[in-house]
């Protein structure tokens, strides 16, 4: 197998993080499971948020996992791509809003 930093098989080993720190690992997975339960938001809404976040943080494991879970929840391609556009819009906005900081600095520095 070609050696890479990310291996698809490692996603299936996620649960093994508890081997080095059981208490915190167990607490994380309990919390994770609770977060994705049906609540004020539906499971479907939550997984679409997760899909957008997965792209924003550019985690390949999260992208695979959230894509699969989105399909399981019956999401269609259009909804999934819109979720990614939301992430893209916020990331783009976060970059551009710093343009104001740049502009303020320019004002301070120039005559």
């Amino acid at each position: 197998m070609k050696e890479t930093y990310y291996n698809r098989e490692d996603l299936g080993k996620f649960g093994e993080i508890t081997k080095f720190q059981k208490e915190l690992g167990d607490k994380f997975f309990d919390y994770y499971a609770s977060v994705f339960k049906e609540g004020a938001l539906t499971k479907r809404e939550k997984i679409l948020i997760a899909l957008g976040v997965a792209h924003a943080i550019q985690c390949p494991y999260c992208i695979d996992s959230c894509t699969s879970d989105s399909l399981k929840q019956g999401c269609d391609e259009e909804e999934m791509m819109e979720a990614i556009h939301v992430a893209g819009a916020i990331r783009g906005g976060a970059t551009l809003i710093h343009g104001v900081q740049m502009m303020n600095q320019v004002k301070d520095k120039l005559m």
């Binding site: 479907r44 399909l71 399981k72 019956g74």
Partner: peptide, 20 residues
Amino acid sequence: VYNPTGAILPGDQVSLENEF
């Protein structure tokens, strides 16, 4: 009846029923 349209397992039945 909902059968997944690919190599995936079905999601939560109640949630899918509501969406359908």
